[in-house]
Design a protein around this nucleic acid. Sequence first.
RNA 1: GGGCGCGUAGCUCAAUGGUAGAGCAGUGGCCUUUUAAGCCAUUGGUUCAGGGUUCGAGCCCCUGCGCGCUCACCA
Length: 505
Amino acid sequence: MELNELEKIRLQKMERLRASGEEPYPTRANPTHTTQEAREAFEQSEGQENPAPVQVTLAGRLRSMRLMGKIAFAHLEDRAGRLQLFFRVNEIGEERMQVLRECYDLGDFIQASGTMVRTRTGEVTLQVSQFHMLAKALTPLPAAKDEVVDGQVVRHATLADPEVRYRQRYADLAVNPEVREIFQIRAAVVRELRNFLDERGFLEVETPILQPIYGGAAARPFTTYHNQLKQNLFLRISFELYLKRLLVGGFERVYEIGRDFRNEGISFKHNPEFTQLEFYMAYADYLKVMELTEEMICTVCEKVLGSRKFTYQGREVDVSPPWQRVDLRQGLIEKTGIDILEYPDAESLAEVVQTRLGKPVKPGTARGKLIDGLLGDYLEPALIQPTFLYNYPRDISPLAKNIPGNPEMVERFEGFIGGVELCNAFTELNDPVEQEKRFLEMGRAYEAEDEQRHPMDEDFLRALCYGMPPAGGFGLGVDRLVMLMTDRHSLREVILFPHLRQIDE
RNA sequence: GGGCGCGUAGCUCAAUGGUAGAGCAGUGGCCUUUUAAGCCAUUGGUUCAGGGUUCGAGCCCCUGCGCGCUCACCA
């Protein structure tokens, strides 16, 4: 542990405290109130005839200190907020005042007891009679007040370097209350998603994260190895195939909220591990799921934000149902002038994309990938208000059921908000023979060594053979939803410890 | 992985190729109701790392590291 000059000074203060008989890291604390409870108790007593003095003990972090000789003001911060502390030498004695002055710093955790008062300027304040250290902070918090130039310009700069904020998230949280708020919102979002599904009879389950065969999405997996079993394992890229096994088992409504892992590029909307919600609902189809989706997102927003509307990157988004519904083929005709029905194979579609749109196409690109590319380039960025794109080509949806009478298209939709894909759902394919065919098709569409190819999952097929009820399935990127609801431009802002490259120290 | 940008005190930021600075925090003073208090004084730097050009480099060039943006990738 290497200490800089400021830290060495604090270390000396810590030692001085200990020498004086005050333990800098005592084992126990005993606050009686939070700052908020203390304020409320005092304000209530103020309304009474002959109010008894309100005595409280607070515990929290010193966030400001104004030493003024024989008195001192400070602010203590706890989980509920901040409250001013008022120290007077007549109350605590010259000796304690000196200890406060010489051994206490911003960032220290302290406990303070006394009587609630209101200062001359009207601020509810704890007049301190006793206080002691709860935990001495050796490193100063990376917070800074700002200069006031010619009586104007008040920037309250604080820790801002994104790298430090992510690598030392504890410091970021300690100093930036709006960052703490993001994660409070995040917790509330997950809670309300759960409530919504629980209320509708869904069973929350947990399925394997370590899987012998990965599937349910097209993505490169992380691999690992179990020593005793001498077996290669993959970190899951989705929950889908396990949750559908549970439909076979008789659980008609199941969901899981958990972590997926994809060994792919990192961007503002991609993180190697991310939180996914998937649910499966027997006897529902994708249209029912669509309705449930807009109701679920709307409910979550109302419960968490208190509104169906929020601002994302300067634009107001309204999640009230019904959301806009756009047929994928029609959407592409409008935005690109290309009717994918007229180009039934990859070669002809690639041709028209190159000539009409002037976009270079990698030779050998599958038709589904071409369509998905068009979707991403021409439709997705414009979908600011909540929108469902529906009816997808079959070859990029090997687990979705055909539209009756249309072997080329499947009953699938994706939901978009703020130009970001939020969720993905379809009527689940439950015909085991057809499913096997799709797996084989996928195997052909990708190179043998391409980890994105869908590996054949024989056990999943066996499960389908026992009979899976018709069902609608759904997946939601929880981090992305939180990103939208908190108006952050990057997933890293809504993930507590986003992955950064390791640096040698 | 490609392109562009950034990296200076604990924090936020300055500094034509010519003595590395400011505010805040810190340290030493004064101050018994302050409001991101005020006043006086003052400490603090491997300018990300390593090379190069130059009389002289925080600044120009090269390499590396990290971060950001962006493209590619991403059912």
